[in-house]
Amino acid sequence: MSDYNFAYLDEQTKRMIRRAILKGLAIPGYQVPFASREMPMPYGWGTGGVQVSAATLTPEDTLKVIDQGADDTTNAVSIRKFFERTAGVATTEETEKASIIQTRHRIPEADLREDQILVYQVPIPEPLRFLEPRETETRKMHALEEYGLMHVKLYEDISQHGAIATSYAYPVKVEGRYVMDPSPIPKFDNPKMEMAAIQLFGAGREQRIYAVPPYTKVVSLDFEDYPFEATKAEHPCDLCAAEDSYLDEVILDDQGGRMFVCSDTDYCRTRREAGHVGRLGTETPLQTGPEAA
């Protein structure tokens, strides 16, 4: 792979992407169109995130890639390998040690710092898309701050289900202006978006980049009498006993046996190494688990 430029993309392309990122940071939550390139992984598999990471990486960076919160899911492995080969940067599974974290569907449990960048992979950047399919119309709605329709959707949820029936990709309003899709993270993660790190969002197929600068106000849309609730399974982690982390539910057998484990594998391991033990955990810290054949 030595024939490719550092991090695959040529310098011109990276500059173009950096301009889009800077514009995105200057207008928090605004979707900046950019000339997305074809990447060697399929659209919908993180091409936007990969391009943003490629334009952000420097040779001194340490990269962490997660999918569903885990470092060892296939797509995370594949993207991490891609950057190991094309950029030769150091990689890590430890949130603490990473300078850039590319993620799909989760925000790490540990608080991120000012010297870290979180890059999200975004499938559909337009929060209004499923209310209005036309791009020309949704751009107008953003420009004119016409967000009434978004609340109509939430109203309908409550009138039909007694609660807002959106559990992931829960829309937020950024710095009191743009309504933004936080990518398909569970709504449990929404409150974490007011953070110290820079958050960058890349949608390759849809050719959009957007950003949330550090300490920006990010408010999940709701009603005064039906306030936003960040929810998770009402269990502690069965391995590390964490009460505050988002949990995956694992079906153990066909008798209804199941366990709940941290979706953030690094968080869970760190806790177990610090001596926390859950219902089904053991004293000694374990490897991250056998790999599937």
Partner: peptide
Amino acid sequence: GGNIGERLMAVGDRHYG
């Protein structure tokens, strides 16, 4: 209800009740 409520929400009403 949503049809009638839309204009209210469009001008900033945020109380479902």
